[in-house]
Structure formats: C-alpha cells, structure tokens
Amino acid sequence: MENTTVNLTIGALATAADVGVETIRFYQRKGLLSEPHKPYGGIRRYGAADVARVRFVKSAQRLGFSLDEVGELLRLEDGTHCMEASRLAEHKLDDIRAKLADLARMESVLAQLVCACHARDGHVSCPMIASLQESSR
C-alpha cells in the first residue's frame, strides 16, 4: 500500500485514525504498522495508507480478531487470498458462536440464582452465595 501523502506526525496519524499515540507505537512494536524513516534532526511522517492500515486493524479488532489474527489478515490484504481470509473469518465465527453459547448458559444459571434469591422467604443462607461455595469445592 503506497503512502500518497506523507505529512502526518504520529499525533496527527493517531487523531486521523481515532486512536491514541501509544496505540500507534504498540502496533509498530507488534509489526502491524511500519515505522517510517526518521530524517536526521526531523520527525517521522505518516501518510494516508498508514491511516487506512490503523483503521483496518481497529475494524478487525471490533469483529473480535486478535492482533495476531489481524496480522494474518494484513498479510492477505492484497485481496487475492479470499479463501484464506474466509477460513480465518469462519474460524472466528465458530469462536464467537461458542462464546455466545457459553454466555447463554451463564445467563440461564445466573437468572435461576437470582430467582432463587428473590424467592428465599426467610431462609438464612443466600442461594447465590451457597451455589458459588458449592462450585468452589
């Protein structure tokens, strides 16, 4: 990806990509964003492609991709490896579905415990606390 305009400081890049400067530096350390050459006595300059790349990383993160997975997606960014990208997305979709199933089970158990707490009529022991104590044994 070519940087057409090379005139942004790291702060301006962060603002344009709606992230913090430390996020830019972190992405550079992780190899997700290259660090431009720093001219002697000058400051590094970034361009439009850098803004697009940071936005790509953030978009992928919002979909649940880890930074390692984002790195894989960036390796495929030329758009010619659609099957590989599809496999990564399918794997992520499976992970998300598994997490949703776990969350549904958690929601069900917690709902039952809340109902038990509300229906305890004069019992000394809290059903919620008792259940957690039994689970920890």
Rank of each mutant, 00 (worst) to 15 (best):
A14W: 00
A12H: 05
A52V: 00
S66E: 06
I24E: 00
A48E: 06
G41K: 04
S125V: 15
R45N: 09
L8H: 00
T9F: 08
K99H: 10
L103K: 08
S108P: 02
R75V: 06
G64R: 03
E107P: 00
D78R: 05
I43P: 00
A104Y: 02
I129M: 11
I96C: 09
K92L: 14
T23M: 06
H123S: 14
K99M: 11
G47D: 04
T9Y: 05
H81E: 12
A116I: 02
G47M: 00
H118Y: 11
L13I: 08
T80M: 08
A116S: 09
G31W: 05
H81I: 07
A12D: 10
S66L: 05
K92C: 06
A52L: 07
D94E: 14
L63G: 02
A85E: 07
I10A: 03
E35R: 09
Y27F: 10
A48F: 05
F56K: 10
V109D: 05
A14K: 07
S59V: 05
Y27R: 02
I96S: 10
P36N: 09
L100T: 10
K58M: 08
R87W: 12
G31S: 06
Q61R: 15
A104D: 13
L13F: 02
S108G: 06
D121T: 12
H81D: 11
V19T: 06
V114M: 09
K92H: 09
M83S: 13
L63T: 03
Q61H: 03
H37M: 10
A14Q: 05
L88T: 07
L103V: 11
V21K: 14
R62L: 09
V54S: 01
V114D: 06
V124H: 13
L63D: 00
S66F: 04
V109R: 08
R55P: 00
K30R: 13
H37D: 08
R45L: 15
P127I: 04
V57P: 04
A85I: 01
K58E: 07
K30G: 03
G41A: 07
T23C: 02
A98W: 08
L73E: 00
V19R: 00
P36W: 08
D78L: 03
K30L: 14
D94R: 15
R53A: 02
I43S: 13
A17S: 15
K58F: 01
E77K: 15
L73N: 03
V114T: 10
G79Q: 04
F65G: 01
L74A: 09
H37R: 13
E107N: 11
A48M: 03
K92T: 07
C117A: 11
Y40F: 10
A49C: 11
E77Q: 12
D95K: 09
E84S: 13
L110Y: 04
S108K: 09
A89T: 11
I24C: 05
E22V: 08
R105F: 12
M106C: 11
I10N: 01
A98S: 14
L73M: 13
L88G: 10
V51N: 02
